[in-house]
Design a binder for these strands. Structure first.
Length: 427
RNA sequence: GGAGGGGUAGUCUAAUUGGUAAGGCACCGGUUUCGAAAACCGGCGCGCGAAAGCGCUUGGGGGUUCGAGUCCCCCCCUCUCCGCCA
């Protein structure tokens, strides 16, 4: 959520910057009208309430003195005031409700360094690492390789649950576990992240805090339970919300956490995309990196975070690139996002394996995550950031495809062997 | 799931059985001091307002009342005990 007084005072600038995201800014016309109506109701409420608050204790005093007639007169006056106040409150609540609907739907303002464009064609590649493996033969895709080695069984996953669910086994399951441990070890032992193992079911307040609700409910799995509980689409939700409604100690910042969880996405609206394999599934495993920082350092941290995630791919020897997403291509809550894309041989292209975003105060304002810059100072919203470090399902695909050999076997990257009991090769 | 105790501003703690949130600590500013400590004065949740001010705020939401921290209803969290369970 944006700062409402910032929007009020910089309406034209807000309009202009949101337009670069392809956001329909006509709702901002209603914003002005509702904002004025709301504030007028609040002011008038204040005037009437002041009179009520003055009279009300007088009634008690009069009654104690036995002056019941005088008390009765004032009582009637206060009762009339109350009716007017209730009417104003109803007006304020209505305006506030509509205003909130607008504010909750407004995406973050893109940072000035973000390339402007209406979709992914305007994204800018900022760097590239390594080279695609020279296989010397037409690469098999991960589904074919997985079936061939008995490490991936999608037909059975479809039987157990339905389409778009993963089932790895044997060395395939071990590879997933190895990737998880490898990533967590690098981030916690070398990059200084605190390890977190959070709930994977969250309430609607948490999803509101990070921005998935109310606008993107269709992307989530909602549980049939007596309360509105959802499966997490990413560990960003529980980990960021650890600090919801808290005032953090200034010297505890920056907070940096790494969490491995399963993630669940309904993938509504993506029928027909990536239907083969486990690139796009309803359930996947991911290591997520989350930061809470002082506002002034958030852009330096975004670079650091992106590099921490990239380090995993460097250690695995996987060809990849970092892309600055354009204004038209990144998630609503973010002010700036880098995607890290890994080379997928069977598709002859790069595919997203991590998304690293600076949300500035957008999430912190929704989730009320604050800190006190120094003793006695007013509290301020922190900046939050997060990025995948990395999506394990897609890393699995990248390893299997990039390390396939002419004889059909799959070489295990050096960095993972100690996590796989010394296994050097599958098949 | 059952029984009982709790939830008050950053923190700790009051509030005549309904009368409009009092204090302590920490922190900030000022006075004092060579400087500091102590002491004293003021500030110390959010909102509206140019300001003076005014309003809102006792876990959340409803209700009764001229008036609710206090009474009634629903819900959340937490502590103790019992039951169940991995």
């Amino acid at each position: 959520m944006l700062d409402i007084s910032y929007v009020r005072e910089n309406l034209d600038e807000v309009r202009r910057r949101l337009a670069t995201r392809g956001f329909d800014t006509t709702v901002l016309d209603r914003f002005e009208e509702l904002d004025v109506r709301r504030r007028r109701a609040i002011t008038e409420h204040g005037d009437l309430a002041a009179e009520r608050n003055r009279l009300s204790p007088e009634i008690g005093a009069l009654m104690k003195e036995g002056k019941n007639d005088e008390a009765e007169a004032k009582r009637l006056r206060v009762k009339a005031l109350k009716e007017q106040i209730d009417a104003l409150d109803a007006e304020r609540d209505a305006a506030e409700h509509d205003l909130n609907e607008i504010m909750f739907g407004i995406p973050n303002l893109p940072h000035e360094s973000v390339p402007v464009g209406k979709d992914e064609s305007a994204n800018v590649e900022v760097r590239r690492w390594g080279a695609a493996p020279e296989l010397g033969f037409e690469p098999l895709d991960h589904v074919t390789l997985g079936e061939k080695h008995g490490i991936l069984d999608l037909p059975r996953a479809a039987k157990i649950t339905g389409t778009r669910f993963p089932l790895t086994l044997g060395a395939g399951a071990l590879l997933e576990r190895a990737l998880m441990n490898f990533m967590l070890d690098v981030h916690t032992r070398e990059h200084g992240y605190q390890e977190v193992l959070p709930p994977v079911i969250v309430n609607s307040d948490s999803l509101f805090g990070t921005g998935q609700l109310p606008k993107f409910e269709q992307d989530l799995f909602k549980l049939d339970y007596e309360r509105p509980y959802y499966l997490i689409p990413t560990a960003e939700v529980p980990v960021t919300n650890m600090f919801r409604d808290e005032i953090l100690e200034a010297d505890s910042l920056p907070r940096k956490m790494a969490a491995h969880t399963l993630c669940f996405r309904s993938e509504a609206g993506s029928f027909g995309q990536d239907t083969r394999g486990i690139i796009r599934v309803h359930q996947f495993s991911k290591v997520e990196l989350v930061w809470c920082v002082r506002p002034e350092e958030s852009y330096a941290v975004l670079e650091k975070l992106t590099d921490d995630a990239s380090e995993i791919l460097r250690r695995l020897g996987l060809h990849h690139r970092v892309v600055a997403l354009s204004t038209g291509d990144f998630t609503s809550s973010s002010a700036k996002t880098y995607d890290i894309e890994v080379w997928i041989p069977s598709q002859h292209t790069f595919r997203e394996i991590s998304s690293c975003s600076n949300f500035e105060a957008y999430q912190a304002r929704r989730a009320q995550i604050r800190y006190r810059p120094e003793p006695g100072a007013k509290t301020q919203f922190v900046h939050t950031l997060n990025g995948s470090g990395l999506a394990i399902g897609r890393t699995w695909v990248a390893v299997v495809e990039n390390y396939q050999q002419a004889d059909g076997s799959i070489l295990i990257p050096e960095a993972l062997r100690c996590y796989m009991g010394g296994l050097e090769r599958i098949g």
